[in-house]
Every structure is written in C-alpha cells, then in structure tokens.
Design a binder for these strands. Sequence first.
RNA 1: GUCCCCAUCGUCUAGUCCGGCCAAGGACACCGCCCUUUCACGGCGGCGACGCCGGUUCAAAUCCGGCUGGGGACGCCA
Length: 476
Amino acid sequence: MPSPSGNEAKMPPVATRFAPSPTGELHIGGARTALFNWLYARRLGGKFILRIEDTDRERSTREFVQAILDSMSWLGLSWDEGPYYQTERMDLYRREAERLLARGKAYRCICTPEELDRRREEMKARKEKPRYDGRCRNLPPEAAEGKPYVVRFKTPAEGQTVVRDLLRGDVTFENGELDDLVLLRSEGTPTYNFVVVVDDAAMGITHVLRGDDHLNNTPKQLLIYEALGYPPPRFGHFPLIHGMEGGKMSKRDAETSVMKYRDMGYLPEAVVNYLARLGWGHGDQEIFSLEDLQGLFSLEHVNLSPSRFDINKLLHLNAHYMKEADPERLALLLIPYLKPHGIEASPSPRLVRIVQTLQERARTLVEMADAAVYYFREKETDPKAAAKFLTPEIAPVLEEIADAFSALPEFSSAATEAALSEVVARRGGTLKIHQPIRVALTGGTASPGLYDVMEILGREEVVRRISSAAKRIRRG
RNA sequence: GUCCCCAUCGUCUAGUCCGGCCAAGGACACCGCCCUUUCACGGCGGCGACGCCGGUUCAAAUCCGGCUGGGGACGCCA
C-alpha cells in the first residue's frame, strides 16, 4: 500500500515500446523482445508503443515495415500507440542536437570516414580498444565551415556511469571507456543512440526492456539523457537467443524470421508460448496462452543466461496446439497449405472432418496438408507398401470387399467395419486385411482410422480405389 | 586486445534473493514397455545436470573470491 508521499504514488503509468528497424523481417529474437515489452505493459496496466527506427535509409524499406507489422499482428501483439516513424520526426532530432551543440555538450567533427577507419585499424593492430580519439573536440567552429561534418557527443572523460538494471542490478562503466559517439551523420540524419534517447524521452517511455546486446549502449544513453536534461527510464536487459551451436541465432541454426514459422505451418499461439518460455519460466508450467502470460509475466523470473533456440520444443508445442485447436479454425488455416499440392479446397463440413482425423497426427499445418492429400485425389502408391501389402493372394479379397461395400445399404463407418469382419470371418478369421485396404486407399501404410477415412472418402471412391488396386495386382 | 554480461540434465527450465524441505523437480529430445486395424495420440518407466578450486558455515546448487568456459559490445547499423 503506497503512502501518499511514497514513490509509488508519483510513479507515472508504465509505458514500454518495441522499436524495430525495418532492415529485415521480424526476427524471432525481436519477437521475444516485443512480447516481453507487451506483456510487461499489459501486466502493469500500462501502454505499449510501436516505433519504427528507420533512420538507416540505405537499408530500411516499406516492405519490411509491412512485414514487421504483419508479424506483430499474427502473434497477437497489438500496440496502443504508433507506429511512429523516426524519419517523420527529423526536426525534433535536429533541434535537440542543436541544443546540445549550443550548450557545449556536443561538437562538430570533420574527420572523414576513411580516416576513421584507418585509425580504428591501427588501434586494433596495437591491441587497443578502438575508439574515436577526440581530435576535433576543441576545433574552432569555423574549422567545420564548408566541410562535411558530423555532430559528436562530448562524453565526459572522468567519472563513472552506473546502469541500474532491473534484472542484473548495478552495472558500472568508466566514462573513460566510452566513446565520443556520432549523434548526427554528415547528411544530418541522427544515429541510433541519439534518437532512441530523444524518442524515449518524448514518448514518455518508463521502462526500456531490450536485448543484452544493448547493455553497453546504456551508459552512453544515460549520459545523453543527462546532457539533454531528461529523466532516464528504467532499463532491463535480457539475454539473447542463441542458435543450437551457441552464438547469435543465425539462419545456419534455424529459420530466424517469424513469418517463416507461419509459412512452415506453425500456429501463433505455439510461437508465443515457446518464446515466452525461452528465458522465462513459471514453476513447472509449460503451456501458456497469451492471456495466461498477461497475468503471470514478471521480470524477476527472466533468466540471465542466454538460451538456445530448440526447434524440437517448438514443434512439440505446436503439436499440442494443433490438437487443442478448434477444427473449424484449423480447416480455414489449412486451405493455403493445400495449394502447393494442387488442391483448391474451400471451407466445408467435409474439410472439418478431414482436419479432425489429422489433428493428433500432424505437428504443423504443412504436415497436415501433406497427410491430407489422399482425401482429395488418389495418390501414387508407395512401391514398398505395395510390395508388402498388395500381394497376388490379396487381390480376390479386395474384390470381395469392394463387392460387399457396394451392396451395403448405408456406407457408414459402423457398416464398413461390420462388413469387413464378415469377410474376414468367412475367410477363417485370421486374415490381415486392414493394411492392404489402407494402401489401396491412401497409397501408404500410415493414416487415420480406416473406417473414418472410408466414411470421408465415400462409397464410390472407396470401391473405385479398392477395385483399381485389385486390378493393378492382377496385371502384375 | 579492451570493456561488459552470464554459468543446474544434450536443450528449455524449477530451486538461488530469505543456506537445511534437493541423495536436485518438470518439459523437449532419446531409449524401452503398454494401448492399437497402420501411423500417431495417450499412459508407464529409463537415461541424464548443480563447470572447477578455495573460503564462510553445524550445513552450500544456493553466500564470497579466483579460475575456466560461453556470450555480447567496441560504426556516419540498430
């Protein structure tokens, strides 16, 4: 219970943000960052802001912006404000840079990129930490006239900056280790460490939750906050997601784009569940809906060590959600995955029935589509299956069964099962007939329950496929 | 090279803050068995970890130090 004079009472409502740069599709690691920020805001009744960091004009594209927005929506991560685009806020950044220049907190630097590169290489060769040597710090203002220049931050040479990390506690940096970083490029566009501060301050961000790779940037940003005279937000850095081989997750390990997982037939709830459990836990619980997560997520339970992306566990979770999912919804979702097989399906009760037979057998929508093909057209028979089950002595039995099915008053799974036992009984009761029929019907040895398959296929098609299998056997 | 972070089964994790309930629990994967018209699902069981060394303590996975190992950052990228 917060006292009237306590900090709690004055705490502004929580605001988090996700600030991707549209230089690629939404990365699986970025998606987790977005998820954690979204959850944190939701949990505390705050707002979640989306900001597109497109100041790198060379590499940012409209298409990537759209892909990121689509990925967020697919995952169910809605934003309360934005998307803001940094390229639309250039005036603000230039104004703030001017302010720093006027107060002597920043300076113009006329070193060329080539020169800088050269010096960096030299420093590396000398085994020093590569950094700007500050040679333009005290240049008279006229020196920059008529020349291209960048605006650099005047990092204090002395003292320490401590980052009070929400997850790791205090992390202390020597200011002397920090660089005079570039604030404005020679074309006048701002760089990351500068815009992020200006925007987070302007947007009232209270909590910056981001990947570990930004921990080293934080002291620089803190110093910029101070120079600008804005109160800094709280920071929390969680570990990166690694590939199975260790190291930043790359395409070598697994697909890194969220959209690709959708394309590979994963359900968004499985991806969300998996991402949440990667670096976070809640006792022994494994299954979490987005709604569960909103109520349970907390920074205290975020792990500090990097976790590896394990596609097997994602697959397992997806299989779980495939089983849980409403068959009508799955039927709708399945349609596009049928297209590559040349199947143009449309929503129907039959499609729902098909999905129901496949739900506990398919781990992804792609697997489900693969397994569903024989429901739509006769598949080529697997030669091994044919050799084993479509033997000459089985041909007359198949013919007998086809006849029995044709004579049935109604073609239900109960009826076909009864008819089949009758045939088997007539032949001595030890006949193994299921696999031959399965091969005749589906082209392979694995399928849902035979009677269900037959009911869905319908009498005409069942009789046709069984007879044609018998004919093929007789022809040799 | 310099700075920073991290360290429980192969992987994700519970336990670590407030040392004893932990001869370390769950999940994935893997291996067996059961169920079964096939394949799956499911059920049961197995395999499997506190990186190392020292310290504090009656007692350490839990606290402290060192070592080792892993990772990240050092751009006119974000």
